Computed example of a mutant assay.
Amino acid sequence: MTVVDAPVALAAAPSLTPSSLTPYSTTLSSAPLAHARLRAAAARHAEEAERTGLLHPEAVEAMTAAGLARHFVPRRWGGRAGGFAELLDTVAETGTACASTAWCAVLLAAHGRLAAHLPTEGQRELWGDSPDVRVAAAIVPPAGRLARVPGGWTLSGEWAFASGIEHADWVLLASLDHSGGGAPAYRVLAVPREVVRIRETWDAVGLRATGSHGVAVDGVFVPEHRTFLREALVAGVADADAAPCHRVPYQLVAALLFAAPALGAARGALEAWTLLVGMRRLPDGRPLTDDPAVQQTLARCSAEIDAARLLLEAAAARADGPAPGPAAVALNQRDAALAVDLLTGAVERLLRTGGARGLVAGGALARAWRDIHAIAAHAALQPAPAAAAYAATVFPSGV
């Protein structure tokens, strides 16, 4: 599929309705088809999703059918305990069509990985009937009020930015535990979606359809087996039988996962830009694509997108590799931040050279520009902290 004919191919993709979905299979033959259907559904509803601020139900069901919810779920519950490189590919491909869908897709997988740190009984409550449970989360920063009661905790309060909350079955929330008498512990708790109130606070310039609203709970009881401490995310699952994806620390992969939709958004911007300039003519009647400035924009932006892809693939390979050390964490943070910086710069250049048609509301190029700026604003992708973490692994201490 070339850059120019990609939207035409998507338009011809078979229709996907919730009734036509089949359970996700781990067979290699079914996965590519499910992923293609996900991108097709994302493309069909991208403009509507941005306008309404809601993912279309077809796109949500397609995410589940493509195995995103179960991607990191432990195999004992029927999950895949999959890898980061394959997730990067799926999310980036989806983001080419709709970055909001890609954002929810990657977090659907990521939150399943977080929930895998629950005690066994808590995991059973989530996945005992199916690994395709959709989990949302608002764990950074911790908020709310936590009180110790017999058998567990009561939780009250409000949290911000719970992406995907509108189509979640469970929600992970974080609060500080002061019950120990010393420094407060950072505790993560799993609560059913039906006890959570959505506060419709998300009305952003980009990633409009992610539903990253605030949430609130009032005196909800959470049993001990549905909680874990943040230290488990930092250390990874200690069980010798745990899959590689569960043994890596949260800091190693957080920036990588947040960056994956940006790769797709930049690819989508390049596709849209290529179509736009292909329709225009120079004053002498020749195609605009004969203009050296246009050719240089194409070469530079496509190279920057490819360079960002290589950085993210290297980060995914470290995450999938054997026993990554502290230096790998800093490398992944550095590479994810730089990749998003490259991608944002490329999309900026494409928008500036795309002409008036590229600025039309609802157009794919303008939407990609808004979405990638929303992604680049995420705290996990800021260049300064990433640079400081990397420098600490290079410069001698105290120098």
Rank of each mutant, 00 (worst) to 15 (best):
A328P: 02
A260C: 10
A143R: 11
P119Y: 00
I375A: 05
E121R: 08
I165G: 00
T101P: 00
D218G: 09
G128P: 14
A303P: 15
G53L: 07
L256H: 01
L54T: 07
A330H: 08
P223T: 04
G95T: 11
A238I: 06
A115L: 00
P150R: 02
A388F: 15
P150K: 01
P142S: 11
A138H: 14
R148D: 14
G214I: 01
D169E: 13
T154R: 06
A388L: 10
R197D: 13
T96C: 14
A59P: 00
A12V: 05
A323F: 15
A43Y: 05
S25H: 07
V73F: 15
A330M: 08
A240T: 08
A42N: 04
P150T: 02
P74V: 01
D203L: 14
L87F: 04
P383E: 04
H178T: 09
R80L: 04
A266S: 09
T27R: 09
W77C: 04
R367S: 09
L114P: 05
A85V: 01
P396H: 15
E166L: 15
V140Y: 13
C245V: 05
L343N: 08
R193L: 05
V294W: 01
E194R: 09
C104L: 08
G358I: 10
A66T: 04
W103E: 11
S175G: 12
A9T: 11
A388C: 12
V294N: 03
A168L: 08
E50V: 14
A339C: 05
A269S: 01
M63A: 09
L276I: 07
G285H: 10
E61L: 06
D132H: 10
A190S: 10
T27M: 08
S25R: 05
A138I: 12
Q123S: 12
A336Q: 03
P261K: 04
R367V: 07
L256W: 00
A376D: 11
L351D: 12
L310P: 14
W159I: 05
T94P: 14
C104W: 03
A143C: 15
W159Q: 05
A109I: 02
C301G: 10
L38V: 02
A168G: 01
M279D: 14
I165C: 03
L87M: 06
L28Y: 13
P385L: 08
A209D: 06
G82K: 02
P385T: 09
G398I: 10
A109H: 00
A40P: 01
A327S: 14
W170N: 06
P184E: 04
H35I: 06
H45L: 11
A315N: 05
L155K: 03
S212H: 07
G354W: 11
L16G: 13
F395V: 15
G79A: 06
A243H: 14
L55E: 07
A40D: 07
D129M: 03
V329L: 14
V234S: 12
V248K: 01
T27N: 10
A115Y: 03
A6S: 05
L359E: 15
L343R: 07
N332D: 11
L126F: 08
R281G: 04
T344L: 02
V217Y: 07
A388V: 11
E48M: 12
P57F: 14
L288R: 11
V4Y: 00
G122C: 06
V195S: 14
L33S: 08
P74L: 02
H378T: 13
A232L: 13
L312A: 12
S100G: 03
V394G: 12
P14M: 07
E271H: 01
V135I: 11
